[in-house]
Design a protein around this nucleic acid. Structure first.
Length: 740
RNA sequence: GCGCGGUUAGCUCAGCUGGUAGAGCAUCACAUUGACAUUGUGGGGGUCGUAGGUUCAAGUCCUGCACCGCGCACCA
């Protein structure tokens, strides 16, 4: 260090100068990542070529859940990268043929919404003023900029990803694969175009899937009223404005109050709109709710649409895509909220309102825009999850080749038959519950950024194919739900639809590791796609991690200002400290907490290891330890530590593995073994020599065990202290995992 | 409404197939120029949410209840 030493110079033994000052992450991290990357060892092919991995070694593969290109990495992404990097480094050191595929996700809606918002702010223009082509150009520029930042961040975290296999959801090869998938599923009859009730987001001006809905509990008023003075039945509704779209009143078939009216038809004028209402009996009606009679609005309610199906009712649309009334009369052009008040006022005037009561109601909102969902009938593209198809060749337990089943059944059987294992069993229940209640999946989106639907129209003709059929054919303007392409991710990153070596070698992948919040969006749908196209599961094990919360257990959010930037923290405390503090105390599937204090604590640990090294190197000096025997007892103890760590790895309890290593290093090795060693070393002779050997062996083993968790500091030690390598490779990342 | 978690020291959590409570942080006291003050040693602190049950023995198994969190459904 720079402070001039005017005290007597302590006699420095012959150890590398780098250990004479505290560990400095900022000086080492970038260099070490470059060392790893340029070594080529992130790529399993290179590992085989250079003899690090046996050619016939067991493959171990993980496909990185591609982060959205909408911004920068947050603590959640850092946690994900840390967990996966730990597993991957452990697998690589254990001699497996280890592949971790990097990627980024275009995140269609999220990205377009973000860019549109920016343009609206800076230029005051909407996307329609800009035009499709120009908007896409702007989005591409935005994406390119973010991508490079994000890739740099992934490197900073230390992720040992094989960059030679990097994929982006919208690159050419992925794009083509998505088109191919759509066409094949269409040809199998599992994708169809249909007019059904969709979840329409008036704010985002697009449909969204059931899973993209967020329910918000709000206070609402339930009004009870009649359509007109001469109408015999009262109904209840929280949305009286929709009643101008009613074509029936449904009652329970066994409700004695209404039996006499079933089958009768009435004409009324409701708020200036003439209605023709038929009374129908339908078992889906709950006799106990409200008046026991349900005003049926087929075009603006999912269940009403289904009732209309059963009773062959007309389905007039009375609300537009802009959530405005399309009926003539006083409501014409009003927004739904205004119309509601206007209808209530009219009901009061007419003396038709019988009751209004406060109730709590779940309002459906769009996850991305927060817009209140307006159910509307629309002609959209759907994945049919109920229609049986024939699975040509099945490698899934419980599903026979050439058998016939629906996608829903496929998804259920994969879990029930043990085709995949959930690290936390409880998620299997959640998954199964979801799979069994699955409804058609709406996959078309009315936005511009994304994989455009490969369907072509000319007059009344329609063709489903990847390339344009020729002049005069117009491509469907819609793009696919971003999760449709994501669902193919394990396959497309490995080369599908080509039958590549990678696909053969690494698919099914060993493990999917992602947040539990995208179990349905993504994990379940990968099972769907992989099952349909390949007859196999996309991954053998499902590891779901929880949310990263702040020190007080609050969700990380912009409004709270409690975001902790992983790269920021790393520049203060080192990335090793960030990584290990993210996974310490984090049981799989449960939310975890991160705070600056915790990270600071683990910086101390990195330095502790540094100082241990300094002590050991000093103790060993220039002794030749090659032929020296260490002490049995301590070696047995070390073995038992390795066994504990292995067991935790086998159970995916990397938090416990890290804990075991941490405690051994600090509280056993440093606090006890090193302290006990001081007199032994001073006494000299064979005992001292044996102890030197023991200390070196313990440290070497600790470096290896700790490497997956804290790759930088351990590699820094390995690089600076060749004496500790004991004949192994000069890069710790590819050293052999300790055996017991 | 259905389901899933959780409830153990001030805080964050661990306690596997049941044998009478552990760690880290925090706190208090003491020590040390030591490989390391990014330190060490020691102490205090818990009737393991609640009421029952099974058992020779229950944080640990079973049942009910309460509270917190989450998912799904309903949403007339």
């Amino acid at each position: 260090m720079e402070d001039t030493n005017d005290k007597k110079p302590t006699p420095q033994p012959d150890i590398p100068a780098t250990f004479l000052k505290p560990y400095s992450p900022e000086e080492t991290e970038t260099k070490l990542y470059e060392l790893w990357e340029s070594s080529g060892y992130f790529n399993p092919d290179v590992c085989v070529e250079k003899g690090v991995t046996a050619a016939d070694a067991e493959p171990y593969s993980i496909v990185l859940p591609p982060p959205n290109v909408t911004g920068t990495l947050h603590m959640g992404s850092a946690l994900m990268l840390a967990i996966e990097d730990i597993l991957v480094r452990h697998a690589r050191m254990s001699g497996k043929k280890t592949l971790w595929v990097p990627g980024t996700d275009s995140a269609a809606i999220a990205t377009q919404a973000r860019v549109e918002k920016d343009i609206q702010k800076s230029e005051g223009k909407s996307r329609h003023e800009l035009g499709r082509e120009e908007l896409l150009k702007r989005i591409d520029a935005f994406v390119e900029e973010n991508k490079s930042t994000m890739l740099a961040q992934m490197r900073a975290i230390g992720a040992s990803l094989d960059w030679s296999r990097y994929a982006y959801t919208m690159d050419d090869s992925r794009y083509d694969a998505v088109m191919e998938a759509f066409v094949r599923m269409y040809e199998a009859g599992l994708i169809y175009r249909g007019n059904r009730i969709v979840n329409w987001d008036p704010k985002g001006q697009t449909t969204i899937s059931d899973d993209e809905i967020v329910y918000e509990e709000r206070k609402a008023k339930l009004y009870t009223f009649k359509y007109g003075k001469d109408f015999p039945i009262s109904i209840s509704s929280t949305r009286p404005e929709t009643k101008v779209g009613d074509t029936a009143v449904a009652v329970h078939p066994e409700d004695p109050r209404y039996k006499e009216y079933v089958g009768k038809e009435y004409d009324v004028v409701f708020c200036d709109v003439p209605l023709h209402i038929k009374v129908v009996a339908d078992a889906s009606v709950d006799k106990e709710f409200g008046t026991g009679a349900l005003g049926v609005t087929p075009a603006h309610s999912q269940i009403d649409w289904e009732i209309a199906d059963r009773h062959d009712l007309p389905r007039p649309q009375v609300i537009s895509e802009y959530a405005k009334m399309t009926v003539p009369g006083r409501l014409s052009g009003m927004k739904v909220a205004e119309a509601r008040e206007a209808v209530v006022a009219w009901l009061r005037e007419e003396g038709l309102l019988e009751k209004d009561e406060d109730i709590m109601q779940n309002v459906s909102t769009a996850e991305r825009t927060g817009g209140v969902i307006e159910p509307l009938p629309k002609l959209q593209w759907w994945v049919d999850v109920d229609k049986p198809f024939t699975i040509a060749e099945s490698k899934i337990p419980g599903i026979a080749s050439a058998s016939s089943l629906s996608l829903k059944e496929l998804m259920t059987k994969v879990a029930e038959g043990g085709g995949v294992t959930f690290v936390s069993e409880r998620f299997e229940k959640t998954y199964l519950h979801w799979a069994k209640n699955l409804r058609p999946w709406c996959i078309s989106r009315q936005i511009w950024f994304g994989h455009r639907i490969p369907v072509w129209y000319r007059e009344d003709a329609m063709k489903v194919q990847v390339d344009s059929p020729g002049d005069g054919w117009e491509q469907d303007p819609d793009v696919l739900d971003t999760w449709f392409s994501s669902a193919l991710w394990t396959m497309t990153t490995l080369g599908w639809p080509e039958e590549t070596e990678d696909l053969k070698e690494y698919h099914p992948t060993t493990l999917i590791e992602t947040g539990y919040d995208i179990l349905f969006f993504w994990v379940a749908r990968m099972i769907l796609m992989s099952g349909f196209f390949l007859g196999e599961v996309p991954f053998k094990t499902i590891y779901l991690h929880g949310l990263v919360r702040d020190g007080q257990g609050r969700k990380i959010s912009k409004s709270l200002g409690n975001n902790i930037d992983p790269v920021d923290m790393a520049s203060k405390y080192g990335m090793d400290a960030v990584r290990i503090s993210l996974i310490m105390g984090m049981a799989p599937g449960t939310d975890s907490r991160i705070s600056e204090d915790k990270i600071r604590g683990y910086k101390h640990f990195a330095n502790k290891l540094w100082n241990i090294t300094r002590f050991v190197l000093t103790a060993v000096g220039d002794s030749d330890l090659e032929r020296v025997q260490g002490e049995e007892v301590l070696h047995a103890e070390l073995s038992s530590l390795v066994m504990t760590v292995d067991r935790h790895f086998a159970e995916y309890r990397i938090d416990l593995a890290a804990d075991a290593i941490y405690h051994f290093i600090w509280h056993r090795f440093a606090d006890e073994i090193i302290e006990e060693s001081k007199p032994i070393l001073q006494s000299g002779g064979d005992a001292a020599l044996a102890r030197q050997k023991t200390l070196a062996t313990i440290l070497t083993t600790c470096l290896k065990l700790l490497h997956p968790f804290m790759p930088y500091v351990t590699e820094a030690v390995w690089q600076s202290a060749p004496t500790l390598r004991q004949g192994e490779r000069d890069i710790l990342m590819v050293a052999k995992w300790p055996t017991t």
